[in-house]
Design a protein around this nucleic acid. Sequence first.
DNA 1: TTCCAGGGGTAGA
DNA 2: TCTACCCATGGA
Length: 292
Amino acid sequence: MAIWELQTPANFSLVETIEAHGWHQLSPFRWDREEGVLERVEELAMGRVHLLRLSEPKPGSLRLEGAEGTARAEIEARVRRMLQIDLPLEEFHAFCQDRPKLAHVPERKQGRMLRCPTLWEDTVKVILTTNTTWAQTKAMTARILHHYGALCPADTERRAFPGPERIAADSLERFAEVARVGYRAAAIHGLASEIQSGKLDLEALQTESLDASTLRKRLLALRGVGPYAAATLLLYLGRGEHINVDSWARMLVGKELGRPVSDAEVHAFFADYAPWRGLAYNFYAWRPDPNI
DNA sequence: TTCCAGGGGTAGA
DNA sequence: TCTACCCATGGA
């Protein structure tokens, strides 16, 4: 077992990053809250599959565990993306300090959200959250891993999240049959095929220096990605302006106003939180239990 | 049976 | 830009 450390910024918290939303409940993530350990099966370059373990034994330092021979640089790059370690939060934290509903954010070192190692995986999972229940999102994700994910040698009950090439190699009909993701099958299989054929360089979206508006348009151009999904992905890409209005947002604002609300009223409710409306909503004082 | 869930695409106005 | 309707799935 190889063990090494990774330094983190003073305003970083592993627990707060992981529990910012429900991503840790989706395979191949496995989060042990009591032990404070995040596990994940990773398929690395050259097809090597490893079980990765992450913990935060002390502030400012992460403990990484991987199999001997693990490509550390590759693992570290993925961990930095997953945990948004390089996301600058100073401005947002200063913004939160004199706002009662957000004052807890800098105190608890919140503001980062657990991501997957690739924009591909985040995009697929966001599509799997649309117009369905959270229980079904978890089930659909698990089926995709079961049928297309590479087996973990250290634990043959677990698999890695498949790259687009694995899904693109199968037919849409077969994918729809085994993944049972409903009408989302065409969007996900289509996305995989476009990436595999080279027609779409999805990962480049996060390295190109695009302004938030342009980036949003590029995301909205993806099949299966609408305003909610684009706002969610923008948050993961460090752009906290747009609100990912979902049933939770309507529940939250409805609770604040004491009545059912429309999407427009959700946007209006957070108008004063510009240019951090999306982050403000996601870290607002009252949130439904992410473990439901 | 009908409704609806961490919405999106499309047609028509 | 706004509205109406449909979309696969599975639990309530």
